Simulated scan of single mutants.
Amino acid sequence: MSPTRRCLSAAAALTAAVAALAATPSTASAAAFTPPPTHAGFDYQIGGAYTPPSGVTVVSRDRSAAPAAGLYNICYVNAFQVQPGEEKDWDSDLLLRDANGKVVIDEDWGEALLDLRTDAKRQRVAAKVNSWITGCKTKGYQAIEPDNYDSYTRSKSLLTASNAQAYIRLLSSHAHSQGLAIAQKNTSELAGSRTANGLDFAVAEECGQYKECGDYTAAFGNNVIVIEYTATGLSRACSGWGTKLSIVRRDVDVSPKGSSGYVRKTC
């Protein structure tokens, strides 16, 4: 290559680089954040906080709870649906409704779905949820677990995967601005888009039971936390991933220790 062409090539590369920077959303405002350690002792305490068992270094707790002192804490937020009894805390038009005006409900948990169909509504929902995320940061949490990413699969085809992803990008951007890592909760079919959606690790329920753990590790490497609810699921998860991932079995209600239904086992 001649010196002239080399100079022209370098100039073109510099121009392209400047253009690329201009076209890329600024991350200057994002604070430093760190995903949870991999293959760590983990406890899932979203149903009620209690003293973590020996060997646990990572805990997930509901946003209403205080983080566990000295551990890596993940703040659980019901980001796509409404906790039972809290419907009046939301503007009525932000509850997803069918053609007859009836609120669409996740029948398994009795939770109303949030309406994410337009940018304007996503912005309004995100404003509320992001205030919770800020609250998690204030309390001392290091990461966010936004639940029900897959609400679109229960929406009677009213919501789409694109709606869910456009919304979660609003949450991930805010979490990062607060210095918090943010998880993809379940929804293995969207794991391949984790980078575009700004998601740092995965929290996968029953990926052992349904033989889906590999779908998450293909996208997140070993940055995957697994919660199983059956002996079979735990056995499968431990057999395939016990030396790489953070794995725990809990009871379905995620009861606090000391409750009659409490179950906690590990590999």
Rank of each mutant, 00 (worst) to 15 (best):
S2C: 11
T4A: 10
T4H: 07
R6H: 07
C7W: 13
A10W: 09
V18C: 10
A19R: 00
F33V: 09
P36Q: 10
P37I: 08
T38I: 03
T38W: 02
H39W: 11
A40N: 06
Q45F: 06
Q45W: 05
G47N: 01
S54F: 11
T57A: 05
V58S: 04
V58K: 11
S64H: 05
P67V: 11
L71P: 07
Y72K: 05
Y72R: 06
I74G: 03
N78W: 05
Q83F: 12
E87M: 07
K88H: 14
W90S: 14
S92Y: 11
A99E: 14
N100Y: 09
K102D: 10
K102A: 14
D106M: 10
D108W: 15
G110I: 01
G110W: 05
A112T: 03
A112I: 02
A112M: 04
L113H: 08
D115Y: 01
D115W: 00
L116P: 13
L116A: 07
T118D: 06
R124K: 09
V125Q: 00
A126S: 07
K128R: 14
T134A: 13
C136Q: 01
K139E: 01
G140D: 03
G140P: 03
Y141I: 00
A143S: 05
Y149E: 10
D150N: 13
Y152M: 07
T153S: 13
S155Q: 02
L158P: 07
L159T: 04
T160I: 00
A161M: 04
S162Q: 10
A164Q: 11
A164M: 12
A166W: 13
I168K: 09
L170M: 12
S173A: 10
H174N: 10
A175T: 08
G179V: 04
A181Q: 00
A181D: 02
Q184W: 08
Q184K: 02
N186R: 05
N186G: 04
S188H: 09
E189K: 12
A191L: 06
G192A: 13
R194F: 15
V203H: 07
A204P: 01
A204N: 06
C207A: 10
G208I: 03
G214Y: 12
D215V: 13
T217N: 02
G221T: 04
I227P: 00
Y229V: 03
S235W: 03
S235G: 11
R236A: 15
W241K: 08
S246N: 01
D251L: 07
V252G: 04
V254N: 06
S260K: 15
S260L: 10
R264E: 13
K265S: 13
C267E: 00
